[in-house]
Design a protein around this nucleic acid. Structure first.
Length: 824
RNA sequence: GCCGGGAUGGCGGAACUGGUAGACGCGCCAGACUCAAAAUCUGGUGAUGGUGACAUCGUGAGAGUUCGAUUCUCUCUCCCGGCACCA
């Protein structure tokens, strides 16, 4: 055995071994339970960052652990290869996005291999490859045929100087990142998927995801946003631009008597119509258009509005109320119009205050003693109706259905369920994405590309000028005969949102080589993913889209389950100096140089030890040193053992208290580590426990014969249980200990319950909840005897002198608390 | 603004179901080895007081429930993630 730990040499050897033996090739067979473990695939941005390494280490640890538990494990890897950064790189370096992307894939793939992740590389996928995206195009057409796809106008960020649609991140302080021009919201026709058709199921099935973090389920639930309420129709006093009424949705129809005005979005059809004839309104609507397409922008704007000059009629009491246009009403939610109840809604309240509109109280608190002060803020609680004619005195919950029924009878309203979720716009006015397989024919209209003509290939040789999509300037791409009438027609030049690719890749990993179909029977074997791991930043969009895709694939008979991911782990970010690691902050750490210096095992160990996986992780150079030190100590301890080893074969025959203590610690550690890795996913505490066991083993070796069987047992236990985390060093040490197999193919250690037996326990004695003594007592002591022992302890006596004992609380095997009251 | 999460020694974190706050690691201090340094090893390390046994304080701030609260409830502060075209 080499006297020193040399990660560079052994890691390369071990990786060659895995490659030569195809250790991680996954096959479909049914004599073992399958386990599909997937980490969110990376965007090939150039090189691996520490966040990637953390993500993939977590997945690799779980995969290897499950393998040792006897499961048939699939752990694949691929590349989420379409996206904006490739276009940015093309502009900056004059290199085509395809070339740039494939170069990055090669580089990052090499880095992943150096880290020793147990992937089945035969299943590698790149979403920018036509073999992949052709099935996405095929599937989109299936959804189109099923009526789940439609085209409508939708707003984008428009750079009027570059003549280009901008992503939100390309809009800086309201201006285009390259031109500096003020962006405008502009409507263009775009393709949408009807995710709202699945809103009910996407919400309901969250209940079935018992192994998802509650946090993520709550975020999805709020995002889907089911709201019960009423649609209410307000007739305009005079018909305007052929609009007769304004429909609103409200969750509070009980406040209908408190409506003092209506507010419509600047993008509401009535606002658009009025802007054409009324200059002040036109000015206001235009000003509102100079805000980028992000809800956060709108929601933080100071509320402002303009009066339309029009009025509407409140259907409950025929009151005439003014109609305003305001920037705080979203066109995308509900009908783009709200009934304003400033007395009971804070946003309406602020708007009414600013423009001096009336504020009327129509709800009083349940508790008649508490007062409502409408001079400070709106009262948004529920309560009892006042100033509401014959509904006065009813509670809100009674008044709501009563008012809805009245409106329904008068045909000016009805009960309605509203979703916050909007249909998914999948069109992007970009080059580096999968072409949307649609053709526009002057005579036949919109025609999907026939299956026989798929894939619609994205041309890979392009030049970039940053103005519009290159596809729009490539007649050889967009000019095509109409599939129906064969006359000249034009292809869609928009490409898909890259969330499309990441919504189904997990299933394609089951059969990436299948050229005739999207999926085959191997999908039924592997899907659903048993364990999915990825950043918390994907908690809503990616996971919701993938769940939606899965359900549509199910309804097309392509998969058999309801949900794609059985168990989810949302991993935290990697920080340095308290901030997210990023190139712009210049606080990144390069994984490759760390591997060069310390080896992959040290990097993996540090990342798993520094924090539990869901929490953010603070990078520490000295922490990495500490991880390296631990591995060196493990190497030295094993070396010392092998040099003296003529060990007895049976640890159970070693009977001194020290031998028993080491064995007990060993088996307590098996119990803890198995629970920490298998159930809790707290790898940091598992590692801490193994460090403690190695510490105790080394102390034992220094004071006893170091070739004892219990030492061998402890070392082998640590090596096996560390092997998912540090697979290279443990494979070498395991073989040095004389084993012909490798840890990944060896069963996980099991507990000898005999070894766990304890004869005595340490019990804490408290007086009034403060620790006053610790007692070592026989493990089977009776409560009464424990109490008597506690009451005669010197320090306990000091604290119970001159007091009356009120009661004694005994928590078995842990603690006894004597509750006393001082005599005065 | 809205939704979700977080805050514990000098630092990362532990305490799993309301029951010993600070496991494990880093850093620091002292010692051993060394001509010396690095590496390695041994011991110490929340604050305050005390020679000591021990005592008091202490988990972002303030209140509450409890024999007992880092853990549960309420109010607040600050930080982080998401907000539909970054992925």
């Amino acid at each position: 055995m080499e006297p020193h730990y040399t990660p560079k040499i052994i890691e390369e050897e071990v990786q060659h071994y895995w490659q030569a033996h195809q250790t991680f090739k996954a096959t479909e067979h049914s004599n073992q339970e399958k386990f599909y473990c997937l980490s969110m695939f990376p965007y090939p941005s150039g090189s691996l960052h520490v966040g990637h390494v953390r993500n993939y280490t977590i997945g690799d640890v779980i995969s290897r652990y499950q393998r040792m538990q006897g499961k048939n494990v699939l752990q694949p890897i691929g590349w989420d290869a379409f996206g904006l950064p490739a276009e940015n790189a093309a502009l900056k370096h004059q290199v085509p996005p395809a070339k740039w992307t494939y170069q990055n894939i090669q580089l990052m793939g090499k880095q992943l291999k150096q880290l020793g992740f147990g992937y089945d590389w035969d299943r590698e996928i790149a979403t920018c490859h036509p073999d992949y995206y052709r099935w996405e195009q095929w599937f989109f057409i299936k959804l189109y045929e099923k009526g789940l796809v439609y085209r409508k106008n939708s707003v984008v960020n428009w750079d009027p100087v570059d003549g280009t649609v901008l992503a939100n991140e390309q809009v800086i302080d309201g201006r285009g990142w390259r031109s500096g021009a003020k962006v405008e919201r502009r409507e263009i026709p775009q393709w949408f998927l009807k995710i709202t058709d699945y809103a009910e199921e996407l919400l309901a099935d969250l209940e079935t995801l018992s192994e998802w973090p509650q946090q993520v389920k709550t975020m999805q639930k709020n995002w889907i946003g089911r709201a019960e309420g009423a649609a209410i129709h307000f007739k305009l006093s005079d018909v305007q631009a052929s609009i007769e009424r304004i429909d609103v949705f409200t969750t509070r129809p009980d406040t209908l008597f408190g409506v003092t005005f209506l507010v419509i979005s600047p993008e509401h059809p009535l606002a658009t119509a009025l802007a054409q004839q009324n200059p002040p309104i036109e000015t206001f609507v235009t000003k509102c258009r100079q805000v980028k397409v992000a809800e956060a922008e709108l929601a933080t704007l100071e509320k402002c509005g303009v009066y339309t000059g029009l009025t509407a009629i409140n259907p409950i009491n025929q009151e005439i109320i003014p109609i305003w246009i305001a920037n705080y009403v979203l066109m995308d939610y509900g009908t783009g119009a709200v009934m304003a109840v400033p007395g009971h809604d804070q946003r309406d309240y602020e708007f009414a205050r600013k423009y001096d509109l009336p504020i009327r109280q129509v709800i009083a608190p349940m508790d008649p003693n508490s007062a409502v002060d409408l001079s400070q803020k709106a009262y948004s609680e529920k309560g009892i109706l006042i100033n509401s004619a014959n509904y006065n005195g009813l509670t809100c919950d009674v008044a709501m259905p009563a008012i809805i029924q009245f409106l329904a009878e008068k045909r000016c309203g009805e009960k309605q369920i509203q979703w916050r979720l909007r249909d998914w716009g999948v069109s992007r006015q970009r080059y580096w994405g999968a072409p949307i397989p649609m053709i526009y024919c002057p005579s036949c209209g919109t025609v999907p590309v026939p299956e026989s003509q798929l894939p619609v290939l994205l041309p890979e040789q392009v030049t970039f000028d940053g103005v519009g999509s290159p596809l729009k300037k490539m007649p050889e791409f967009y000019q095509t005969p109409c599939p129906k009438c064969q006359r000249p027609a034009e292809r869609e030049t928009d490409t898909f949102d890259t969330f499309m690719e990441s919504s189904w890749y997990y299933a394609r990993f089951a059969c990436p080589d299948q050229t005739d179909r999207m999926f085959d029977e191997r999908v039924d074997y592997w899907v659903p993913v048993d364990q999915y791991i990825g950043g918390i930043e994907h908690a809503i969009l990616h996971l919701l889209y993938a769940r939606f895709f899965h359900k549509t694939m199910r309804d097309l008979g392509l998969v058999k389950t309801n949900e794609p991911f059985t168990r989810l782990l949302s991993q935290g970010m990697v920080l340095k100096d308290g901030a997210k690691m990023s190139k712009s902050l210049g606080n990144t750490v390069d994984p490759e140089s760390l591997i060069e210096q310390y080896g992959a095992d040290t990097v993996r160990l540090f990342l798993m030890f520094a924090a539990p996986p869901e929490q953010s992780l603070e990078w520490s150079d000295t922490g990495v040193e500490g991880a390296y030190r631990f591995l060196k100590r493990l190497w030295q301890a094993t070396l010392q053992f092998t040099q003296q080893s003529t060990a007895a074969e049976n640890p159970a025959t070693e009977n001194t208290p020290e031998h028993k203590n080491l064995r007990r610690l060993c088996h307590e550690t098996i119990r803890k580590v198995t629970d920490d890795i298998g159930r809790r996913y707290t790898f940091n505490t598992a590692i801490a426990a193994m460090m403690e066991l190695l510490n105790a083993t080394q102390t034992f070796m220094a004071t006893h014969q170091s070739n004892a069987a219990c030492v061998k047992e402890a070392l082998e236990t640590v090596i096996l249980m560390l092997s998912p985390i540090v697979p290279h060093i443990t494979q070498v040490l395991w073989q040095e200990l004389g084993h012909p197999d490798i840890p990944i193919l060896h069963p996980w250690p099991t507990i000898d319950s005999q070894a766990l037996h304890r004869e005595t326990l340490d019990i804490v004695v408290q007086v009034n909840g403060k620790v006053r003594a610790r007692l070592n007592v026989p493990a089977n002591i009776e409560n009464k005897d424990l109490e008597n022992l506690a009451l005669v302890h010197e320090n306990v006596i000091r604290h119970i002198e001159n007091t009356d004992i009120q009661k004694v609380i005994v928590i078995p095997k842990k603690l006894i608390n004597i509750v006393v009251k001082h005599n005065d």
